Amino acid sequence: MPPPLFSERLELAAVLTAVGCSRMFVETTLTKWGATPVIDDALLVVSELVTNSVKATGVTTPDPNWAELGKLNLISVRLLGLEQSIMIEVWDVESRTPVAQSADFDAESGRGLSLVEAVTSRWGSRPAWPGKVVWAELPLQPHPEE
């Protein structure tokens, strides 16, 4: 990957409110960079990736007690502005590689990575001690079939 033209990072506690905070970070950053055409897809992607990170490594209780907060992990959201695309990376301490699942029509969850796959040009993960980085790339130009 060529060096990014722009780069911003946000560190968050792995709690449910991290999803909303990451969405605000992405919207503000992409607006500042002038990458407004990809904001809606970027918000979907970061929501799904951060939700997965919080579920895998964080506290998902709406009102956590002190004992739960004592075991709190961090997650990191990084945006990279490349010449032709935006890269979204989410790091967490879980080392297992994420796998897109096929969810039943009436299932309430399980479609996240399938949605990421649908709106990005590519996505994947890589080890990052400790844990992993899940990344997704959004082209700045529309796909030719659109």
Rank of each mutant, 00 (worst) to 15 (best):
D41A: 13
G58D: 08
R78M: 14
P37Y: 05
T120V: 08
N52V: 04
E27F: 00
V119K: 07
R23Q: 15
A18C: 10
K71T: 11
L80R: 14
V116H: 09
D63N: 12
V133M: 12
G58T: 06
E146V: 07
S95G: 02
H143P: 00
S85W: 01
E83H: 12
T29L: 04
S22D: 02
Q84Y: 07
E145S: 11
S22C: 03
T29D: 02
G124A: 07
E8N: 10
G70H: 13
P4Q: 06
S76Q: 15
W33P: 00
P142M: 05
E137G: 01
A100W: 07
P3D: 11
C21G: 01
N52F: 04
V50E: 02
D92W: 08
W66H: 13
V90P: 04
E146H: 06
V50I: 09
L113Q: 01
P98S: 05
W135S: 08
V134R: 09
A100D: 07
A128K: 12
V77M: 13
L115P: 00
L79H: 09
A100K: 13
L115N: 01
Q141P: 00
W33T: 03
T97A: 15
D106L: 15
A13T: 10
N52S: 13
R126F: 07
P142Y: 05
S109N: 06
L30M: 02
V50L: 06
E89T: 01
E89A: 14
S76F: 03
V116A: 09
T51M: 09
T29K: 03
L69K: 13
P130M: 07
E146P: 00
V45Y: 11
V93Q: 11
A100V: 04
G34Y: 06
V54H: 04
D106N: 13
I86K: 04
V90M: 06
T29A: 10
L12R: 10
T31F: 03
T51W: 04
S85I: 01
